[in-house]
Amino acid sequence: MILEATNITKHFGGLKAVNGVDLRIVPASIHSIIGPNGAGKTTLFNLITGAITPAAGTVMFDGVDITGWSPERLAKIGLARTFQRTSVFRNLSVLENIALAIRSREGLSRSIWQSVRSEEAIAAEAMEILGRVRLRGYENSKAGALAHGYQRALDIAIGLALKPKLILMDEPLAGMSRGDRETVAALITSLRSALGVTIVVVEHDVSMVMRLSDRITVMQHGQVIADAPPAEIRDNEAVRKAYLHGSFAT
């Protein structure tokens, strides 16, 4: 397992946002997490990536106990994420958004001198990553000026620039047109095959999730109600109930 979360728990006041969740992620897999709004998916991501500290439970990443680690420390050992609400450096150029992540990965963020050669090498790598997410041609635009779908792609590209072993994407397809969703879905599949990166995705579009995933975890009320390959999830009684309650967004 590349990621193994055991009995992860976080309560907000009386609300059991995440309540004793177990999550096991196989290396180089695409693993989706689905569930109604408020099920605790984003909170689970926040707990794994260090944005908030779990009240109970442990998280193992690549054989290391990372429970309670800060996001910056986790980023350095290859755990990246994207955000449900797109999070980019809006007033910086698209290229600089990527370059920041590359410099961070290379441990250059604090230097006050950089050779032209290293700067060019970073720009070249950034262009390659932009090519991967189909943002080439926009490198000089301000990130905030990009269309919504492109900003989401940039958010993913920033994560990729860290050369992560595992990337968690919180609703990467949200708010996108049909065409853009297909593009990003294809991107996610290609990332796994080309880079061997493990991907955990939160997504509402169930048919998309069925096609995309090797395995699916279903959450409801802060708990895991099912965890199985797509075919089994389709036939799962508890999951069907969640559908019938109509609480899945489409």
Binding site: A80, F89, S104, S109
Partner: peptide, 8 residues
């Protein structure tokens, strides 16, 4: 975002 790209 800066924290999540590993900036201290």
């Amino acid at each position: 975002r800066a924290r999540f790209i590993g900036l201290d």
